[in-house]
């Protein structure tokens, strides 16, 4: 059983401001999902390579050749808040006073 505290910690990592009732609901639902999912832990997977990538060919590279960028007006046009040049966000505070 995943505790509400655990869900709070995970929600914090995922930057989700869950309400108390959401936390309780998710704690219960995710607990029962994980109970069901635990069955894979009974598989004998010793020496099995994980499938980190789907069906892919290795070594996909591109030439180091520049193309014109999309440009400022284009990328910031859809932003919720800008100063006309940069994305504007609430102040990032790095040090403690």
């Amino acid at each position: 059983m995943i505790s509400k505290e655990e869900i709070t910690r995970i929600a914090d990592l995922a930057m989700l401001d869950l309400t108390d009732s959401e936390k309780n609901e998710y704690a219960a639902q995710i607990s029962s999902l994980l109970d069901y999912f635990k069955q894979i832990q009974s598989l004998d997977l010793a020496g099995v390579e994980p499938t980190n990538h789907a069906l892919v060919a290795d070594n996909v590279l591109r030439e180091d050749k520049a193309f014109p960028s999309a440009g400022q007006k284009c990328v910031i046009a859809g932003a919720p808040d800008t100063d006309g040049q940069s994305y504007r966000v609430p102040a990032i505070i790095e040090t403690e006073e």
Binding site: A14, M15, L16, D17, V75, A79, P80, D81, V89, P90
Partner: peptide
């Protein structure tokens, strides 16, 4: 809530902006 799409209307600081936007 930084680059595109929806941003929550009210927040006290950066973390709250993230959390409320995503919630």
């Amino acid at each position: 809530g930084v680059k595109y799409g929806f941003r929550a209307p009210e927040f006290k600081n950066l973390k709250e902006m993230y959390m409320k936007t995503r919630d």
